[in-house]
Design a protein around this nucleic acid. Structure first.
Lengths: 207, 207
DNA sequence: CCACTTCTTTACCGATCGGTTGGATTTTAG
DNA sequence: CTAAAATCCAACCGATCGGTAAAGAAGTGG
C-alpha cells in the first residue's frame, strides 16, 4: 500500500532504475480487487489505484490484466487458500474434511478480506471476451476437486475410510459445500452460522 | 427468437404502432444472456442481438439494463427456478429438501440452458457501478433462505421434524448445497454426479 | 564523469460501454 | 382522411474500457 517502503534488493541486481513499489504488496492489493469485483469487474483504474502504481508499471511487471489475474489467483492459493494444502496433509480423512470446511468458512468470512472465495467468484461467468479466463478457472476448480478425491481415495485404500466409500461423490460433496459456503459468505452470512453448516455437513461422514 | 411471430393483441389496445416483438420471448432471451454472462458481462449489444431487437426498443419496453435484469431474475423464478416454490409446497419436510436439491441439480444441469443458477452467478460480484444490483441479489438469496427456514420451522412445530432441530442451520445447509451445486454445474459437472451429491447431502436428515 | 538500462509519468489510442436523439414508419382515434 | 401516439431504425453521445508511445527520471556499470 505504502509507496515509501524501500524496494528489497533483488537477487540479481540488473542495471537500470529499480521499481519503486513492492511487487508482492501490489499483487496482494490486486488480488483483493479481483476478489471483490471479479476479473472483468475490476477495471485497470481500480487496480492501479489500489496497487498504488500506474498502468505502464503494471504492464511492465505483470504483462497484462489476464497475467495479473493469474498471478493473483496463484497468490490466493498460497495465502487465503493455503488451508486446502494443509488440510490435504492431515493424517486422517475426517480431519481433512474438517479442515477443508472450517478453512473455507474462516477464509470466506475473514473480515479483513472481501468475503467469499476468489476461485469461485473471480470468473464464475464472463462476457465472451473473458471466456479463456473463465475456462481456466473452471479447470482450476476441477483440479482442486481431483486433489481432494485423490486424498480420499488414498484414505480408502489405507483403511481410513470404508472400502465401499464413493470417494468421487464424497469429494464433490465437500467441494460443493465449500463453494456454497463461499456464496453464502458473499451474501453476508456470519462465520458462526456457516460453521454450523460445516458441522452439519460432517454429520453423515462415513464410519 | 423469430420476428415473424405476430404480436399478441394487447389487453387494452392503445393508440400507436404496436411493438413488433413478443415481450416474453425477448425477456427469455435476455434471461439466458444474463445467465451465461452475468449482469455486467452482458453487453447491450449481446442482449439486443439475442433478443432480436434494437436498443431503443429495449429501453422502451424494459426501462434500462437494470430493469431488464430485474425482470429476467423474476422470470427465472417462475421458469427454471419454479421448482423452489413447488418444493415448499410439499407436505413433508423431507420431501421439501429432496425437491430443493433435485430441482437445483436439474435446473443447473439443463442442457438447454447456460448451466448453473442465475441467482448465484447473475451478480455474485460486480464493479462499483453494479453494487446496487449485487446488493439486490444478496437480499433475494437471503429472502429465499428465510422462506425455506420458515417452511422447516413450520414442519418442526407440526412434529414433522424433531423439536430440537436447528432449522436455521438446516435451511442454510440446504441453500449452501444448492449454491455449491450451481457452482459445480457451472464448472461442467454432470447431472448424475451432482445428483449423487444431493443424495449424500440428505443422508444426515433429522429423524 | 559518461553511456546505458530500466522504471515512471503523462498523455493518448481505437474500441466498446450504457444510453439517447430525431426522424421515418405504422398504428389507432376521431 | 387527418391528427395523435407509439414503435422502429440509424446514427450518435460522453464516458470508460484495456492497452501503449514517448519522454523524463533514477538507477548501474564502466
Amino acid at each position: 500500500m505504502s509507496l515509501s517502503t524501500p524496494t528489497k534488493a533483488p537477487a540479481t541486481p540488473r542495471a537500470g532504475r529499480p521499481r519503486s513499489f513492492d511487487r508482492e504488496e501490489a499483487l496482494d492489493a490486486a488480488m483483493h480487487v479481483f476478489w471483490r469485483q471479479g476479473y472483468e469487474g475490476a477495471s485497470l483504474t481500480a487496480l492501479t489505484e489500489a496497487m498504488g502504481i500506474n498502468r505502464p508499471s503494471l504492464y511492465a511487471a505483470f504483462g497484462d490484466k489476464a497475467g495479473l489475474f493469474r498471478e493473483a489467483v496463484a497468490r490466493y492459493g498460497t495465502g487465503p487458500g493455503r488451508y486446502i494444502r494443509r488440510a490435504l496433509g492431515q493424517p486422517r480423512a475426517r480431519q481433512v474434511a474438517e479442515m477443508l470446511l472450517r478453512g473455507a468458512v474462516a477464509s470466506a468470512t475473514d473480515l479483513a478480506s472481501p468475503g467469499g472465495c476468489l476461485w469461485v467468484q473471480g470468473a464464475l461467468v464472463t462476457s465472451t471476451e473473458g471466456e479463456m479466463i473463465r475456462t481456466e478457472m473452471m479447470a482450476l476448480r476441477n483440479a482442486g476437486t481431483t486433489q481432494i478425491q485423490d486424498r480420499l481415495d488414498r484414505a480408502r485404500r489405507e483403511g481410513d475410510l470404508p472400502a465401499a466409500t464413493d470417494v468421487q461423490t464424497l469429494a464433490l460433496f465437500l467441494v460443493s459445500v465449500m463453494n456454497g459456503i463461499a456464496v453464502q459468505a458473499s451474501s453476508g452470512r456470519s462465520r458462526e452460522a456457516l460453521n454450523s453448516v460445516a458441522d452439519y455437513a460432517l454429520k453423515s461422514w462415513p464410519v
